[in-house]
Design a protein around this nucleic acid. Structure first.
Lengths: 204, 204, 204, 204
DNA sequence: ATCTAAGCGAGACGGTACGTCCTGTCTTCGA
DNA sequence: TCGAAGACAGGACGTACCGTCTCGCTTAGAT
C-alpha cells in the first residue's frame, strides 16, 4: 500500500524546476496566492509529481527557502563575538528578513501554524541549525571569558532573534542595519562578564 | 451600490453567536480547519449574515479574540517597573501565549501574513495599544530615573515582547513564568541607569 | 449528512443550459470524449451544480436524450398494425438510430454496461415505455384478430427492436427505411392469424 | 521512428499472464473498473509491455475473449437447419450471453462504441466469422429447399442474433434455452418455403 | 562463448479529468 | 422585510489512470 517513491530515480530536472517555480511564484504573487496547480504549470511538471515528493505547498516552498538561504548563514569566528554576531545576523537580515524573500519566509512560518509537519521541518532544517550555531558561538565566547560565566546563551539567542522575527511577523517594520547592530551590542553587553577588578572609583 | 448595512438594526444575538461559534470551533479544531460555513452552521446564522458584517474569517476570529483579551491588559503602576512588567506580561502569557487560545492567536497572526486588512486591524486593535502601554510605562520609569536617561524604550519593548512571540510563532515552546521573569529582569537591568558610584565589590 | 438538495430552488436556467451543453458536446466530439468539466464550462455552470443534480455524465446525457426523443415516439392507431409499427419505428430510426444522435444514444447504452443506476434509468425512462407501447399496440391488434390469438407479443417486440439495436451497437450499419419496413412486415406476418378457411387450393 | 516490436522475441509467459489477468479482473470487478495498471500489476508485467503489444485495454480483453470462445462455435450440419441453429446458438448463449463472461463481452462491445479500432477488430475477429457461418448454413438450407428460395439470409441472421444482443446490451434479461428455441423456430418458420400444395387441414 | 540489442520489470513522468470542498454572491421562502 | 437556508459560479484541492519514458536486468540471436 502506498510505498514511498524511489528517490534514486527522481528527476532532478523536475525537482529543481518545481523549487524554482515555487519561489518565483511566491515572490511574484505572494505565498498565500500560490497554488500547487500554478507551481506545476509554471514548472512544466505534473501535480502528481509534486505530490509524490512533497506533502504540501508549504513543504515545497520551505525546501526552496532552505536551498536559498542554507549556504549564506555560516557563523564566522574572528574572535570578536559581537562583530561575528553582527556579521551573521546582518546576512540573515539581508537574505530573508528584507527584500522579496521576507514575505515568502513569513508565509511559510504562517503556514506552519496549522501544519505540524511543516512546523517540525521548518524548525529542524532551517531554524534549529542556525539557533544552535548561534548558541555555539556564544558558548565559545563564554568559555573565552568574553561573556559572563553564568550567561544564559539560550536566552541570549532569544533576545537576539526574537525581536527580529517579532517585527517580521507582526508587520512592525524590519530593523535597519544600524538598529540591528545596536540591538546586538546591547544584548551582548548585557551578558558581558563583570570585570575581575572593579574600575577605579571615580576620583571626582 | 453595495451600501453598508445599517448597524443599528444589527441582530446582537447573531453577532454574539457568530463570535462564540468562531472561537469555539477554533479551539476545537484549530484555526486553520475552521471555515466560514462551519461557523455559520454552528452559530445558526447564514453565511450571508457573516459576510455582511465581516470581510473574512480572520476578521471574525480577531474580533472574538479582542473581546476575549481586550480587558485584561491594563498596566499597573506600583512604582517598581520590573514588577509591573512582570505582572502585565504574566497576564499576557496566561491569556494568549499558553492554553487553548494560544493557537488561535497564532492562527490569526498567521492569517495576517497574507491579509493586509487583517494585519492592520490586528496591529491597531490588539497589538499597538499594548505596545504603547508598555512603552508609556517604560517612559515613565525613565523619567523617574529608574531607567537610563537615554534608554531606547522601543527597543526595550521589542526585547520584552519579541522573544515571547518568537517562541509562540516558531513553535519553540513558551516560557515558564520563571523564565519570563528572568527575561524581564535582564532586559530591564540592561536599561538600568549607570550608577553614579560603581557598586562596591562583593565583600564576601 | 449529505441531505439531498431542494428541488424547488433549482435553477431552471442552469438545468437547461447543462442539458443543452451536454448534448451539443456529445454531438460535436462524441460521447466518450465529453467530460463533466467540459459540460460545466460550456454551460457556464459549476461542476458542483452538475454533481448536485446528477450522479454521472451518463445521467446528464440520458436526461438530454429523453428530452430529445420523449415526445417524438407516440404510437398511432390507424387500425393497420403493420402500418402503425412502420410509422413509429421509422420515427425512432430517424430520431436516434441515424443522424447525429445515434452515436450519443449508443454511448449512453455503452455507459450503462458498467453503471447499474444508469442502466436502470435508461430502461425505466427511455426504453420500457416504448417497449410497453409497442406491446400494447400489438395486443390490441391481437384482440382485433389481426394477429394470431396465441401471438407472443413480447417476442414480437424483441424481433422488431432487437435487430435495430443489434445493428446500432455492433456497428453493422443501420437499416434503410425500406429494409426496416421489410423487417416489420416479415415479423408482423409471422404472427398473422391462420386464416379460418384455408385458401382455396391452387387450381393450376 | 517507433518500429514495431519483434514478435519473435515476445515473452509468451507475459503474453498469457496478461490475458489471464485481464479476464480475471474483468470477471471479478467488471470490465469498466479494470485498468491497465491493475492488469499489469496482477500479471506481474510492466505497463510498457502491455502497451507494446496492445493499443488499449479493450484490445487486451478482446483478445482474451477471442481465446476463450474462439473454438466453440463451429456450425454443425445435421441436415435439420432449425436443429443446427438451436445447437449453435445455445452454445453461444451458454458461453458469452450468460454466466461471468457475459458482462465482459458487453463491456467490450460498450468500449467499441468509442473506439473505432476495437469496433473493427471485434467485428472482424469475433462477430463477422460467426455471422458468416450462420449465413452460410442458412444459404445451404435455402439451396436444399428447406428455406424459401427468396429467403433473405442476412435478415434472418439479424432476426436470430438481434434479439439476443438486444437483451444482453439493454439489460432486458437473457433468454432461457426454451425461449431461445422458440425464437429460432419462429424465425426459421417465417422463412420456410411456401408449400406447393397447401397443407391439408388437420383431420384430427 | 561472448557480445549486443531487444524485451522485460519497475515505476517516475506530463497530463487530464475526476469528484469534493470552500469561497463569496445571489435567490427563495418563512416568520 | 429581514434573515436562515441554501443554490449558485468559480476555482483549488488531492487522487487516479492514462500513455510515454527511462532505468537496470535478463536473455536470446548473431558474432
Amino acid at each position: 500500500m502506498n510505498r514511498p517513491p524511489n528517490a534514486q530515480r527522481r528527476s532532478e530536472k523536475s525537482h529543481q524546476a518545481t523549487l524554482a517555480a515555487a519561489m518565483d511564484l511566491c515572490v511574484e504573487q505572494g505565498y498565500g496566492k500560490v497554488t500547487v496547480e500554478a507551481i506545476a504549470a509554471r514548472a512544466g511538471v505534473s501535480k502528481k509529481t509534486i505530490y509524490r515528493w512533497w506533502p504540501t505547498k508549504g513543504a515545497v516552498v520551505l525546501e526552496a527557502l532552505i536551498a536559498l538561504v542554507g549556504k549564506a548563514t555560516q557563523f564566522p569566528d574572528t574572535g570578536d563575538v559581537a562583530a561575528d554576531m553582527r556579521t551573521q545576523m546582518t546576512a540573515v537580515l539581508d537574505n530573508v528578513m528584507t527584500g522579496p524573500h521576507a514575505a515568502v519566509y513569513a508565509g511559510v512560518i504562517a503556514e506552519a501554524q496549522h501544519d505540524e509537519t511543516l512546523a517540525h521541518n521548518l524548525l529542524a532544517h532551517l531554524l534549529q541549525p542556525r539557533i544552535e550555531a548561534a548558541r555555539d558561538r556564544l558558548r565559545l565566547a563564554r568559555e573565552k571569558g568574553q561573556l559572563a560565566p553564568d550567561a544564559d546563551v539560550e536566552l541570549a539567542v532569544d533576545l537576539l532573534y526574537g525581536p527580529v522575527y517579532y517585527r517580521l511577523l507582526l508587520n512592525l517594520g524590519m530593523y535597519s542595519r544600524e538598529q540591528l547592530h545596536t540591538l546586538i551590542d546591547l544584548v551582548i553587553g548585557a551578558f558581558a562578564p563583570v570585570p575581575a577588578t572593579p574600575p577605579a572609583p571615580d576620583p571626582g
